[in-house]
Design a protein around this nucleic acid. Sequence first.
RNA 1: GGGCGGUUAGCUCAGUUGGUUAGAGCGCCUGCCUUACAAGCAGGAUGUCGGGGGUUCAAGUCCCUCACUGCCCA
Length: 968
Amino acid sequence: MPHDLPKAYDPTAIEDHWAEYWVRENLFAQPVVTSAAQGESADGQPQFSILLPPPNVTGRLHMGHMLNQTEMDILTRWGRMSGRRALWLPGTDHAGIATQMMVERQLTAEGTSRQKLGREAFVERVWEWKRHYGGAILDQMKRLGASVDWGREYFTMDERLSVAVREAFVKLHEQGLIYRGAYIVNWCPRCQTAISDLEVVYDEHKGHLWEIRYPVHGDDGRETGEYLTIATTRPETMLGDVAVAIHPEDERYLHLQGKKLGLPLGDIRKAWREIPIILDDWVSRDFGTGAVKVTPAHDPNDFALGQRHHLPSINVMDDTAHINENGGVYAGLDRYAARKRIVEDLEAQGLLAAVKDHTNNVGHCDRCKTVVEPRLSTQWFVKIQPLADKAIEAVEKGHIKFTPEMYAKTYFEWMRNIHDWCISRQLWWGHRIPAWHCAVCHKITVSRLDPTHCTHCNSDQITQETDVLDTWFSSGLLPVSVFGWPGITPENRADFDTFYPTSLLVTGFDILFFWVARMIMLGCWFAGDVPMPDGSPRSLADSVPFKEVYIHALVRDANREKMSKTKGNVIDPIEIVKQYGTDAVRFTLASMASPGTDIAFNVERTEGYRAFANKVWNAARFIFMNLDRAAEVGIESPFKVLRGRKGPGGREINLLFNLPFLGGEIPLADRWILAALYKTSGEVNEALENYRFDEAAAAIYQFFWGSFCDWYLEIVKLRLDVSKTPSDEELKQRELTEEEEKALERNAIATGALHTLLFVFESSLRMLSPFMPFITEEIWHAVFDGNPPAKSIALARFPRPREGSATLAPVIEEMALLQSLIVEVRGLRKEVGVEEKAAVPIELRADAGLKKIAQENHDIIERLARVSEIRFVEAITAGLPMHHAANFDVAVVYERTIDVPAERERLAKDIAKYEKGLVAAERQLGNEGFLARAPLQVVEGLKKQEAETRHLLEKALATLKALPPDGS
RNA sequence: GGGCGGUUAGCUCAGUUGGUUAGAGCGCCUGCCUUACAAGCAGGAUGUCGGGGGUUCAAGUCCCUCACUGCCCA
């Protein structure tokens, strides 16, 4: 019996079941579109498409993923429930370096290595690893209920995606945008590959600045006895020095112009190389001694300097950062060992002028944290400027919108200072570059299909390039490649036309450049070549990979510290989910996800939202209890009555329009809760349109707990009294008794109440569902007794504000009056110490409007404020404890003596507040400028407020005066 | 060094194009096991909106400046 819910909500009891159900039933599949479509299906259904930022295949789910996925899931579920053709497309990234490292570590543990295995066997081994363990992170996603289309899951090394990678490379090559050359790149000696600028993380290191004396040579090549002292942080690179540079206006050294220096290496002075002194205004006169050594092969600035001055480059290190044969006597030493030896040798020769403490920024490999070695090497590059220009234009023209907008600035800053992209990696795991070297003519053949002969000399002595492509090259192509590019034909293009450009990208700022910018560049570049369905050329607006980018914050720990393994403050989402339930964790993340602010994840907050889930659960129990009671006396559930009815087009019916009770007199509370529901759904829609997950969550929370549970459920209890009535058969035999007649009337009232109750509750579930998919699914099925109108609440419609819902605003105001009356009475009772359980009479002086409301809803006041009788009066009986509001005065008729000093204090506080407000209001109202320039409604509002405040002040003063002296 | 943020209640954060007496959650205090929920209900306290200056009829909101702080890039 689905109505039989346990007293406390236990997420673990239901979540696995639904997570598994959603996958098994394939509920979120969005099959490949085959008929003509352009952003809309034939029936005009708008699309909502979103790509999951593919986690590394080696990845484990962390809090950042969960935030990212929660946001995407909320938007996708909301879009789907709002009638959009929603596609959330999942996949994983082959993650070149990370994955290779992981498998290499395994090999090391097994006492072997990738070199021993050989390339082919190694790659096969990685595939094997991927098949075994690669799905872990997606399995975790499944557990979290992500509503992705699992049928479209991709892996960046899949055949079809590899085709796209090759096409992109070849095309760029044909367009002259790919070149190969020897440049300074960031080299990781541990990974033994080049890495891109972005993969280098800088860290401050306390090091030294060594000042070294280089002997000045005369024209005859002999030492003049003079020395030029240079400063360096990396003495070991001296081995590759080809010059010393000074600033052209540095008068300290100008006399040395044109002279040469001996490079003091090794103990045989005669063997020292001679290097020139060059002038360049790049040199900073303030740094060190103002003279710097120039090592083009091991420093990017020096490389540029070398280019300008046509200097040679001497590479002195091998792939593992050991000194190579160019390092003479130091060959074979590790770079740090070489540094030590060189410094010692210099000192021994009296050439070390000074050693100073110095803090410098040292680049580390993003993956393995090894200190990166800038190193001259031959790599493949993308000439990025033409792609960047388009990508800049796309954002400038608003074809792509960033939220928060601030990130557009960051994007422009980077894009406008972009460097060519080093796309080759000396790895084995990845997309191998489709280029073949010819052993005969030494030229390169780049080809879509594996060639057998050199295209230049037709030799068959060709071998494929051993380098693979940067992982981001393939992930940067995803928005086009997942929808069929480059194989788009008139016959199969419907899917691409439907979903490209995708609607949105949700991601963290940490991959803004790595991935987001690259997708924009590659997407604009390649999609731009795909004609529109009607054959016309594609505009830039239609070429972008996504129309919007939402950048979310970082999830930190409760103390705002970054989560890191070394700090040991990492929160495992799966653990926290086990403890509090997925829904509560999702709601926590959503409610804290205000744009631009990092999230300090605090389990106390999660505890609060677990309580919220429990609240929802118990509201369901309450409603079910009453439905069951009603059923016992023959009143059918409103949904049972309507079962099987469908609206136009076979869509799920909006039940409210069919509710019979709406024809008659609707009680204030019912009109109010409906108005509040519509208002809230409008707020949630607006908030989600603007990625304000926090506001959306707050609106639902406030509505469900603050309005529906705290007020409506309490009020409706008055109308849920049902009893057995005679059957139709019996009534043919006899007349109704007076009692039975009353019972029938009560049952009719209860039926109306149940209609509103169930309708509002079921609507709330749909509204809450994108945020808390599990509990809402569970209860929703129970609402329909296990026979719901759709397979899942996720396929039902999201509540929309009804047209004309603005006219419901007066209802909200009316109800607010009733609520404030009740709140005042409760406060009064508390102040004068009425026992919780006792019901007392009240005196109420009210204007006509409130009087009518109070009369019509006297039973509500009596129950919610525990009032035995409402006495409407012209003036409150002197001496009774009373409160004033703008529209009424109210007093409790209670004999117990009030706490005079406390009451006096309270009134004094009120009076001070009123006086302060009054002074401010009067000052402003006396200001000619204000009256003349402020909008009318502001002036009117202030006047009204001033009058109310004056009224309240007078009342409070009178009450204070009427108080008996202390101690009475 | 260049760029971009932040500073509002004890804590974590909202606060729209300037407009009525600055809000929420958590925490805190008081009283209640009122048969949906003690993971609950009711009531309550708490702010020189980082400092200073300016613009304006009106500033948490716009401008300048100082302090502190975070991030990105080099």
